[in-house]
Each structure stands twice: as C-alpha cells, then as structure tokens.
Nucleic acid binder design. Structure first.
Length: 371
DNA sequence: AACACGGGGCA
DNA sequence: TGCCCAGTGTT
C-alpha cells in the first residue's frame, strides 16, 4: 500500500536523508555530473531515456564534442545531428532534440526556461524529463519517476497493482512526497542511482540498500517479485528484401527517407515493404524476388547474388532481411514521396559519412567482403 | 528465447 | 487511454 507511507512525514524525511547519505558516498561518476549545466542535463536525460548508461557514454562524449552548446546544436544541420545519433535508435528523439534547441534559441533567447509548463511545451520533453531538468539543473523540488524509480518505489511499498497509469499516479504522489526541499537535484540522481546499481530488476543487492529496513518487499522476502508486470506479448516475425545495387564505378545506391515517419531523414539501400511471415512450421521462400523489388524502384539490374539473411529485433517485431546484391544496368530511382526524398550513388569510402540506422549498416556490411 | 529498460506523442 | 515507436544488453 502506498497510502500509509504518504502520511508518515517522519519516515519520508528519514528515507530521503538516508538516500542522500548513500549518494554522498556511492554516487556514480558520470561525465554530465562534472558540470550540471542545463544543456548537459537535458542531453543526458534524453539519451538515457532509451538506453543504459554504458551505451550512452560514448554517444554523449561525441555529441558534446560536436555540439558543445545549445547554440551549436540549434545551428547544426539535422543530418549532422542524425549522424551522431546513428545506432542509438528511436531517431525521433534526435529530431526533437534539434527542434527543441532551435525553439529555445528562437522563443527563449537561447536560455532554457525554468517553468514546468514552458519545458513541457518543448518537443521530446515530458513530465519526467522536465522534472529531471528542474531538479538536477536548477535544484528545484520536482519529483522524477523513470523506470528505475518506479521499480524502487514499487518495492518500497510492495505495490500489488501492476504498473499502469492508475498505479503510477500513486507512485508520482509518493515520489513527490519523498523529494526533499533541500538538495532535490542530488535526491533525484540518488534515487536513479539506487535503481541502477542496488535495486536492480534481478538480484537486487538489498544488504547494501539504505532503505532496506523500511522496504516492504524486502521485509516480506520478495524484493524481486516487484514491480508486478503483465505477461508480455510475443513479437511477430516479419521479413523484407534489401538491395545493394552497384554501378560499374563501384558506387552504391542509397536513398534518403522522407522527413516524416519512421527513420525520418536517414539513408538506406532500397528495400521492399515489410511483410508478415505467414508460415507456421515451414518457412516459405519469399514470394517476392529481388528483381521485382528492383523494378518497383524503376531500375534494371542483373547478376543477382545473395548472402546470409540478417536477423534484427525491433521493439515490436523480429525482422529477417534477405540481402541481394545486383549490378545496376539502367534507370533512375523513382521517388515515392511517401518513402523517400532523394537518392545518391555513393562511393564505398563515403558511406561512413551518411546517417544510417543499425539494420541498414548490417545490410551494407554483408557484402563488404565480396566487394 | 525471454525479459527489462524507456517515455513521449498521438488518435 | 491504449497503442506506437526500424534496439540493446543480460540471463
């Protein structure tokens, strides 16, 4: 139950004090903690929305090197921003980052707003990110509730409801009551550290936890049981054909995706539509051939060769990509505006300069040995 | 192979 | 309020 703890102001104060003490001794050393300016805090929070700290670190360092200030980011071409984001996934966040930098320069004189409502009006900034910025960069007493904090609080209270909007409302209340007026920024980072290093999804290290004596899940000996989650849906399998078309001069065809929708603005080799896998026990050969896909783009090619299929898991489905390499003969690519905005014949040693998602990097590498 | 992380945006 | 989003690392 969240209720009784909400009213026990002495216990709430004790918990926040113990956590701050833990933070003073065990905080992680992270580059954005060297200098808690609002630009660093915002960038790190957006990157950490989707990935663990270890993956984010090199991206953060490179991004900061390339765009050291909000102004630098706002002035950069979107393509450069996407280039430094490639491989991190969820590319809409990179576009929002760029948009927000430009909006702050245009509408806020280049200075980050410090009001919750103004922050929430910026793309890519929701309640948690806005609160994290206000708490960590401006030391204002706003509560955060990311995945780590949800887990910590669900265990502290032995929350019996699965995480959903209703139960999370209760956790938001609790998170707010726990947030101290003194050092709210350190507190926000402390509770995220606790979830990341001690109160982990599996095998939590309860003996090292400053909240151990007060944690209802721990007292019941069921720490790992919380938070309660609903059974996950199995991901559907889908497949697709990807084409590597090379010209006599060795250049390869890349197409730039349209500026809206999936992978907006990123480059890719021409690919078929994504189709559902209809087989149950025996995989059927794709009913679509590389040549058909090629003609769909208005191109003629010959000498098709294939390689091992590429398996890639996305958030909502498993994809098998069948790679085909062909020698281009004639035709200019058709631009179907819904999918692409432009195309280019790219020399192999220039491919590294284009923003390309992980799956399509894999596709380009499949034939690298053969080239 | 299953699971957890992760939160904003939109219909 | 449910659903969507072209991943990744761990077990």
């Amino acid at each position: 139950m969240v209720g009784p703890l909400l009213e026990d102001t002495d216990l709430l104060l004790l918990l926040s004090r113990r956590l701050l003490e833990f933070y003073d001794h065990h905080q992680r050393s992270l580059p954005w903690r060297d200098n808690l300016d609002v630009y660093s805090v915002w960038l790190s929070e957006v990157m950490l929305q989707q990935t663990g700290v270890v993956t984010v670190l090199p991206y953060y360092q490179r991004f900061m090197g390339e765009f050291p200030t909000l102004q630098a980011l706002a002035q950069a071409p979107l393509e450069r921003v996407l280039f430094h984001w490639q491989g991190l996934g969820y590319y809409q966040r990179a576009r929002h980052l760029h948009q927000t930098a430009q909006m702050i320069v245009l509408h806020h004189g280049g200075v980050f707003p410090q009001q919750l409502e103004l922050l929430l009006a910026l793309p890519g900034i929701g309640r948690n990110t806005a609160s994290a910025i206000l708490a960590i960069a401006f030391n204002r007493p706003y509560a955060i509730l990311d995945g780590n904090v949800k887990r910590v609080l669900a265990r502290l209270t032995a929350l019996e409801a699965p995480l959903n909007r209703v139960s999370e409302q209760c956790l938001w209340q609790l998170a707010q009551r726990l947030t101290p007026v003194e050092r709210p920024g350190d507190y926000a980072q402390a509770i995220m550290d606790l979830g990341a290093t001690i109160c982990t999804p599996r095998r939590p290290q309860c003996p090292r936890c400053p909240w151990q004596p007060y944690c209802r899940a721990r007292i019941a000996g069921r720490s790992e049981h919380y938070p309660i989650t609903l059974a996950s849906v199995t991901k559907p399998r889908r497949w697709q054909i990807g084409l590597l078309l090379s010209r006599a001069d060795g250049r390869i065809l890349l197409m730039k995706r349209s500026s809206r929708g999936l992978l907006a603005g990123l480059w890719e080799p021409p690919c078929s539509d994504i189709l559902p896998e209809t087989t149950t026990d025996q995989p059927l050969l794709p009913a679509l051939s590389a040549d058909t896909v090629c003609r769909g783009f208005g191109l003629e090619a010959a000498d098709w060769t294939t390689a091992q299929p590429i398996r890639h898991t996305f958030t909502h489905f498993h994809l098998t990509l069948f790679p085909w390499q062909g020698r281009w003969l004639s035709g200019e690519p058709d631009i179907n505006a819904a999918r692409h905005q432009s195309w280019d014949w790219v020399a192999p040693d220039e491919i590294g300069q284009f923003p390309i998602a992980t799956l399509h990097r894999k596709l380009l590498q499949v034939f690298r040995r053969g080239l």
